[in-house]
């Protein structure tokens, strides 16, 4: 009984750490939805490319890990801008569902292109970090540092949104798009900036995940659906709601996976999502 509880506690703690990373991913997607009113279905695929970037620069070309991380963040930020200019901008005024489907096309494209370019092998970064042992509980440092970094990044973004002119404009644009030019704000420039920030967050997510998971072309499918559901559960565009939803989701997966099997953790999380959509379709924090 004693041992059992300790392992459960370990699962809960791991859930919290996973929640941090999930919250970071959800934040990027929420930011883009809130500002541009478009869901990047291919968000996790951008992240997958970031993971490959870290892998190749560090493992294959021997760049220091930090430099590889920096490059991945910059690369994915750039990909975000590219996605906006090439794909989103042409459909900005068409039906919402086309905007959703078009990024679905990008998802298929990126995943398949990665398979073509890198093959279906699982690749491990090969950076091993020790674990933090407290009594009988052991938590890998890769997870702890990932969760901490995610927290720092989220705090930094919060300060940016709260304290700067650009940040205020980003929050304002989701409340009233049409009058932004009256303030001297060019919405298309804000969209570009937001796409870059959203991309950078996906890039950062890539750095944190590549320490814990092998890279392969379909890894986006593991994290993508999870990320949308966290966002929708929190209320699309509601960053605080997304943050809370991320931790709920991560706990369901961790504890559900602990009691049954990892897939059942996912089944529970997705099932919970569907039920919550009916109970609170406007998101856990949304007003009726």
């Amino acid at each position: 009984m004693q041992i059992f509880d300790i392992f459960l506690l370990e699962a809960v703690l791991n859930g919290i750490l996973f929640g941090g990373v999930l919250a970071l991913l959800a934040l990027g997607l929420n930011l883009i939805f809130g500002v541009i009113d478009v869901v990047w279905i291919c968000y996790a695929e951008l992240m997958m490319l970031g993971m490959y970037c870290v892998f190749f620069l560090h493992k294959v070309h021997g760049l220091p890990l930090v430099a590889a991380f920096g490059a991945a963040v910059v690369l994915v930020a750039f990909l975000g801008v590219l996605l906006h200019v090439l794909v989103i901008r042409p459909v900005l005024n068409s039906e919402p569902i086309n905007q959703l489907l078009v990024t679905g096309g990008v998802l298929t494209f990126l995943q398949a292109a990665a398979t073509l370019a890198f093959g279906i092998d699982f690749r491990n970064l090969g950076v091993s970090m020790p674990s933090l042992a407290v009594g009988e509980i052991s938590l890998p440092w890769s997870r702890i540092s990932a969760a901490l970094t995610a927290l720092v990044a989220m705090t930094a973004l919060y300060v940016f949104l709260k304290k700067t002119y650009l940040g205020t404009a980003i929050r304002a644009i989701s409340q009233d798009r049409a009058i932004m030019p009256l303030m001297g704000v060019s919405p298309s420039r804000i969209y570009l900036l937001t796409s870059a920030i959203g991309g950078a967050l996906a890039g950062l997510g890539a750095c944190l995940l590549v320490l814990q998971y092998d890279v392969h072309p379909a890894i986006g499918l593991t994290f993508g659906p999870l990320t949308f559901m966290v966002c929708v559960l929190g209320g699309l565009g509601n960053m605080l709601g997304g943050f809370i939803a991320a931790f709920i989701f991560a706990q369901l997966i961790a504890v559900g996976g602990f009691y049954f099997h990892l897939e059942w953790g996912y089944v529970m999380a997705f099932g919970f999502f569907i039920i919550m959509m009916f109970a609170r379709p406007q998101g856990i924090l949304g007003a009726k």
Partner: peptide
């Protein structure tokens, strides 16, 4: 913050 948007 609204006033800050006016001084953007």
């Amino acid at each position: 913050e609204n006033l800050r948007m006016g001084a953007y």
